[in-house]
Amino acid sequence: MENLLGMSSLFLQQLVNGLTLGGVYALIAVGYTMVYGVIELINFAHGEIYMLGAFLAYTMVTVFGIPFFAAIPLTIMICACFGILLDFIAYRPLRRAPRLAALITAIGMSIFLQNLALLIWGGQIRSYPRAVLPKAFFQNAFVVGDITMTWLQIFILAVTVVFMFILHLIIHRTQVGTAMRAISQDKVTSALMGISVNRVISFTFAIGSAMGAMAGILVGLYYNAIFPYMGYNAGIKAFAAAVLGGIGSVPGAMLGGGVLGIAEVFGAGYLASEYRDGISYAVMILVILFKPSGLIGKPILEKV
């Protein structure tokens, strides 16, 4: 009985950790899925925006001495502009080019930004100095039996929920959100209805990048690690989450992120910790093979 209790509390603890991680993945995944929805392109550089978010906040806090909670909105705004710039420089000129060209450009931008960060900030792992963070982050919010949850975890979950709610409002309650949904259905008809397609695409990049930057800050806090290659793994995992939920579908990205975060934590805890990163790749490959439309996505039809 004792043993069973111990096991179930480990299980619940893992569930809490998995949900925290999954929330962050969902934040990144939304960026992939929204961009894919409007221009049908895997924006490989999205993971790098996430990494830049973590680094920009770090620089603001350490070099410029901006308080942490002021650095967050500043970083988000800068990264949103950065997303627009990315689209403008790299993707917009290739809207009518073959798919292959846009994909290669996306990979190229990703590599470029990653190594730019390496040149600017160096390769060593950094972390937000504890002095600038609220002390409460590292204290336990509550302890039930063996299960603990820090304020930081609660902060991450709360931010995730709030951001997702705002995103939901933007997509379903605003004019630009309606335009985004229209474009994802039919670009040409949307343009004929008077929607400025390019402007809406820019807006989509801005929103996605803002969410990605927030996720970067949160992961930097959670793992205490900011480094130039952080966007590489997280980006692919978030993409896996987006695929799992059904690419192009925002609720799908949230669901996929949650499922993948839990799967990763449980897989690492119970199966094989050295294959922690492999779990999300394997999930992604299996989903793509057997159910490419994802859990709640619409089936992919090839347009002629």
Binding site: T105, I107, G108, M109, I111, Q114, L116, L118
Partner: peptide, 11 residues
């Protein structure tokens, strides 16, 4: 950081 150049080349 040499991959920076490869990224630029691709783009």
């Amino acid at each position: 950081g040499r991959y920076l150049i490869y990224g630029v080349v691709l783009v």
